[in-house]
Structures are given as C-alpha cells and as structure tokens.
Amino acid sequence: MLLSRGCRTSSYFLSFDKGARLEIMHNDAIPATANDPMAQFTGLIHMAMSVGSEQGVDALTARLANDGYNVVDGPRRTGDGYYESVVLDPEGNRLEITL
C-alpha cells in the first residue's frame, strides 16, 4: 500500500499477521554509499520498534541518550504522521523508536 508520495519519496508497507510490518521505501536523494553513519544510504536502512506511546518514545530515547547512544533525530512527528526518534546502535545501525 502506498502511504506517502512526494516528488522524491514513496513508501510501501507489508503487514504480517503477528503485527510486524516491513517498509519498502524509495527516495531519490539517498546516496549509494554508507561512508557517513549519520546519513541514510541504500540497502537496509533501519530497524524499528514500537513502544506504544509518545511518552514511551520520549522515555526510551532519553534513556539511550543518557547511556551514551547517539540520537540522530527526534523525538519528532514525521511528515507522514508518525512520532519517532532515531538512535544509532554501537555498530552504526539506525534504530527507529516509534509508537
């Protein structure tokens, strides 16, 4: 299902019976290199976890920041209505914390 389409971005979500979802996203502005861990790149971009509430997003983001993890975005409301933050794990993978 196409959820958002701008001049440069489109997302499709596949939903599974147990509640998991897979997002397939296209964005013309994403470079093909992973040389900058703060920037998005092609390939596997992030893993996301739902914590159930905006307060949960805020609390887990604050805890991870306090523990020394790099918060690269948020918490914030995205253009497509999600409330989320993005934190880098120790290997530089993007972990999205959402509702």
Results as ranks from 00 to 15, higher is better:
T42G: 12
F13K: 14
A29L: 13
D36C: 05
S10P: 04
R8L: 13
M47Q: 15
A48N: 06
A39Q: 12
T33D: 06
R21S: 06
A34L: 01
Y12D: 11
R5H: 12
P37G: 04
H46P: 00
T33K: 02
I24P: 01
A32D: 15
M25V: 11
A32P: 02
S4I: 07
H46E: 02
T42N: 09
I30S: 12
M25D: 11
A20K: 15
I30K: 10
D17N: 11
H46W: 05
I24C: 09
I24F: 15
I45V: 06
D36S: 02
H46T: 05
F16V: 01
D28E: 15
N27H: 09
V51P: 01
V51N: 02
M38R: 09
L22E: 12
H26T: 08
H26C: 01
A34T: 01
H26R: 14
T42I: 00
T9A: 12
L44V: 07
M38A: 12
G52N: 09
D17G: 10
P31C: 00
A20R: 12
Y12P: 01
I24K: 06
E23Q: 10
S4K: 14
S4Y: 05
G6E: 07
Q40A: 08
A34W: 00
T33N: 04
F13C: 07
A48Y: 01
L14Q: 06
M25P: 05
I24Y: 15
R8E: 06
S4E: 10
S50A: 13
N27R: 13
Q40M: 10
A20L: 06
F41R: 04
S15W: 03
G19M: 09
D17I: 04
R8C: 13
M49C: 06
M47C: 04
Q40L: 08
M49G: 02
P31I: 03
G43T: 03
N27K: 07
T33R: 03
M49V: 13
S53A: 11
